[in-house]
Design a protein around this nucleic acid. Structure first.
Lengths: 190, 190
DNA sequence: GGGCCCATTTAACAAATGGTAAAAAGGAAC
DNA sequence: GTTCCTTTTTACCATTTGTTAAATGGGCCC
């Protein structure tokens, strides 16, 4: 299972088998159930997850006290709270499983060990995570000034697979509306 | 004027005078008027700007054909279209001056030359730009599910200085509403 | 000063958007 | 079957926002 991370990295860069073994030795594996909390907001995030299977959500409390879903992450994506992870500051966001999931766990200290042993890894992984930040920004920007139905249609087009796997209430909170509104939107689309 | 970039970088890392001179030799300076277009969408972005003075805006066309403001950038921030710059793909976003501005221009080729000569620069600059991506995401997420008046209040608190320097229509498009709506919101706040 | 151009403000109106509350339906687990 | 939870549905209502159009105001040039 930990292979899936190595295989993913090999899409970008050739990794000798010897290196792969070094990498594997620093990783662990974890299986989580739906709604399981992987990282609780308020703490300093010292883990990065690589998703082999399933969907995670990044959540946070907004001003009104509602729990909102900021992002969904799925197979072959890294998931962490980078601002907290990089800068050792408490996170305002938490990480939860939006459905059953299987993860490779990269502990910060072990990841940094790896960066020392295999310096190219640092560039590789920061490159990938930076790229995924750009995509996140892109999605959120594209929602700017759109009404809820349009945002939902965009979401369906961009992430059709996620739409099928997470709860309606998750999607609603991701789109910034209530469950009922989303259900109504769905009805009107038929 | 080009000093302001060096001075800014020195906040994060000591840069010997010899290196500073190398850096300066690869930079140019540019003064632009309000509404001047610095980078036109549809092209591949091969420049990065460092803002010494003024405010830039990143703009793009949304589905309805409206020109929206995605971000404002100001003094001591880098401004580029990273997705295009890093990956050599055409940009959907453009860069314009939201008010008179003074910029240090980093041409991609010259920047890469610098990265070769002074490898620490790469880590330094990508670190700074990554951090600013995180902040951008943060802002946009905080607008999730908020009404226009609340978004405007947040904007005022987060970027009070920008609110004073850019046009009402820019702010409106940044918040995803019409000028008239924003004007009304302002009135109701008094 | 007078006139012009631009950005901003104001108004009135209509449309629709989305929240609330409460009940019904559906599905999965036991 | 019963229970529990999620999703759907309904009706109603308040609010928000866009639209259109006109008024205001400031800056600037002549």
């Amino acid at each position: 299972m930990i292979d899936s991370l190595i295989n993913f990295l090999r899409l970008f860069k050739n990794i000798p088998q010897a290196d792969a073994e070094i990498i594997e030795s620093e990783l662990s594996f974890r299986k989580v159930a739906e709604d399981e909390v992987l990282f609780e907001e308020g703490h300093i995030c010292r883990e990065m997850f690589f998703i082999c299977k399933g969907v995670l959500r990044i959540v946070a409390q907004n001003d009104k006290g509602n729990r909102m879903t900021y992002f969904f992450l799925k197979e072959n994506q890294f998931c962490s709270i980078l601002n907290s992870f990089n800068n050792n500051i408490p996170s305002l966001e938490g990480i939860e499983a939006a459905c059953e999931a299987e993860l490779v766990v990269l502990k910060k200290q072990k990841l940094y060990n790896l960066y020392e042993k295999l310096p190219y890894l640092k560039e590789l992984i920061t490159g990938i995570t930076t790229q995924s930040l750009l995509e996140k920004i892109n999605v959120r920007n594209s929602y700017l000034g759109e009404d809820a139905a349009t945002r939902y249609r965009h979401f369906l087009m961009r992430q059709p697979d996620i739409a099928l796997r997470v709860s309606l209430s998750d999607i609603a909170s991701y789109l910034g509306i209530t469950q009922q509104s989303l259900s109504r939107i769905r009805k009107n689309m038929r």
